[in-house]
Amino acid sequence: MIRTAALAHVRDRRLIQTRPEGKDVFYMAGGKIDPGETPLQALHREIEEELGVGLSGVAELGIFEAEAFGHGKNTPLHMTCYLADFTGEPVATGEIAEFRYFTVSEYAAMDQVAPGSMLVFRRLHELDLIDW
């Protein structure tokens, strides 16, 4: 099982997704939880590493479980997802090639989508936080 912490940052009714260097698929911003770390600690560390910003107004959205995209068949993903705002303007740093904001349908129309991300997109749409 892969345990991750992820950010559900919404801007203009769209959800941010990040594309790592060398990959074609966009994922939730965030990453793996290191041994001894809480999901919240991992979230803060990963967002600083990936987008060069801090977080404010952090609130847990929920836990999402799906197949981990790109990790072989039957590898489960356990993703603790948080809503939050940025303390500054994000920039793609280090391992992140780019980030974009998507509606549900824009993300779903991509050639490849991460199942965990789709669960978050659907949940945010149910909450009327992002557009279809």
Rank of each mutant, 00 (worst) to 15 (best):
I2P: 01
I2L: 15
I2G: 02
I2K: 11
R3Q: 15
A6L: 03
A6H: 03
A6C: 11
A6N: 08
L7R: 01
L7M: 04
L7D: 00
A8L: 05
A8Q: 02
R11K: 15
R11G: 07
R11N: 11
R11A: 14
R13E: 08
R14G: 07
I16F: 12
I16Q: 07
Q17L: 14
Q17R: 13
R19C: 07
R19H: 06
R19L: 05
P20C: 05
E21W: 09
G22A: 15
K23N: 06
V25G: 03
F26C: 03
Y27S: 04
Y27N: 04
M28S: 06
A29C: 08
G30K: 00
G30D: 00
G31K: 00
I33G: 00
D34N: 06
G36W: 04
E37Y: 04
E37N: 04
E37S: 04
E37T: 03
L40W: 03
Q41G: 12
L43P: 01
H44V: 14
H44D: 10
H44C: 10
H44W: 05
R45S: 08
E46Y: 02
E46P: 00
I47L: 14
E48W: 07
E48P: 01
E49H: 11
E50P: 01
E50L: 03
L51I: 10
L51D: 04
V53T: 09
G54F: 12
G54Y: 11
S56Q: 14
G57K: 11
G57S: 12
G57T: 10
G57P: 05
A59G: 07
A59C: 09
E60M: 14
L61M: 08
F64K: 00
E65M: 07
E67P: 03
A68C: 13
A68S: 12
A68P: 02
F69E: 12
G70V: 10
G70Y: 11
G70E: 10
G70R: 06
H71T: 09
G72F: 12
G72H: 11
G72C: 12
K73E: 15
K73D: 13
N74D: 15
N74E: 14
N74A: 14
N74Q: 12
P76T: 11
P76Y: 08
L77T: 01
H78N: 10
T80V: 13
T80Y: 04
F86K: 06
G88S: 15
G88K: 11
G88R: 09
G88F: 09
E89Q: 14
P90N: 11
V91I: 09
V91M: 13
A92V: 08
E95I: 12
A97H: 09
A97T: 05
Y101I: 11
Y101Q: 10
T103I: 07
T103F: 05
V104M: 13
V104Q: 12
S105A: 15
A108G: 07
A109T: 04
M110K: 13
M110Y: 05
D111A: 15
V113D: 00
V113G: 03
A114N: 13
A114R: 01
A114P: 03
P115N: 10
S117K: 02
M118N: 08
M118H: 03
F121H: 02
F121K: 00
R123Y: 08
L124D: 00
H125S: 04
E126S: 13
E126P: 04
D128Q: 15
I130R: 00
D131L: 13
W132L: 15
